[in-house]
Amino acid sequence: MFPALAANNVALFAISYDTVAILSAFAETHGIGYSLLSDEGSLVMRRLGLINQRVQEDHAFYGIASSPRHVNLPYPGVFVFDETGTITHKRFHESYRERDTGAGLMAETLGVLDGRGGETAVEGDTVRLRAWLDSPTYCMFQRLHLTIELAIAPGFHVYGEPIPRDYTPLSVDVTPIEGLELGPIRWPLPHPFTVEGLRETFHVHEGTVRGVLPFMFTAPPGAGDQILLATVRYQACSASTCLPPAVIQLAIPVREVALVGRSLPT
């Protein structure tokens, strides 16, 4: 990720209320080269309006024991801004556990795609399928995304939904893994399509279509490297020909990054 930051001319800063000594030790342990800024006393976070006023309530909800350190905490989140310093993206999460991957954040907010992982390409008859993850690695509770891209041969379409009976819509199923949580896949809206002589209205994708499937692993650290097994189903037709439904199986590896010396609060 950090070569990607440099290559794309993006500066990175991380701000917490830790002392310089704590940040220094942390940077050394984890080999961190970017700026960890020390907002001891949380004055900047307070000035920016980022202090979570409901920490005790939240911690009670998440079952986190109280501690004198649990005051003046910010909401966990990220700002992205452009060359002029204008904020272009603001991302905050309800839970401290959930966070974006660096690569995923860069892909989504800055269009930087250097951090991809698990890239796979399959040539079908009428479809060229590519799949990738926005990060080659995961940590517990990081939000990752599997992108599935179909380049459909000119003159052909694949079906979206709603769809008449006996046709196969484009779909992706991922084999369950313990601790794997999958969000709904997002496809672009298919457009209505009618065939002369048929009463039904179809909804189809043409050209290049990309679906994005959010997921995260919630198993405790040490769950190890994983392989996502995805099954892509589709049916390709042209105005005159309909091919039988097709299935493409993908195996996409993702490596675990251990949280060295870290644990969730208990």
């Binding site: 794309n8 500066a11 800063f13 917490s16 310089v20 220094s24 700026s35 980022l50 909401y75 700002f79």
Partner: peptide, 25 residues
């Protein structure tokens, strides 16, 4: 920052885009 150097965030980014992460500790 972690080395004790005072960082002016907008000056340090030197005209670049930036990502600023707020985290608990």
């Amino acid at each position: 920052d972690q080395r004790g150097r005072v960082v002016d965030l907008h000056a340090a980014r030197a005209g670049r885009k930036a990502i600023v992460v707020f985290y608990r500790s």
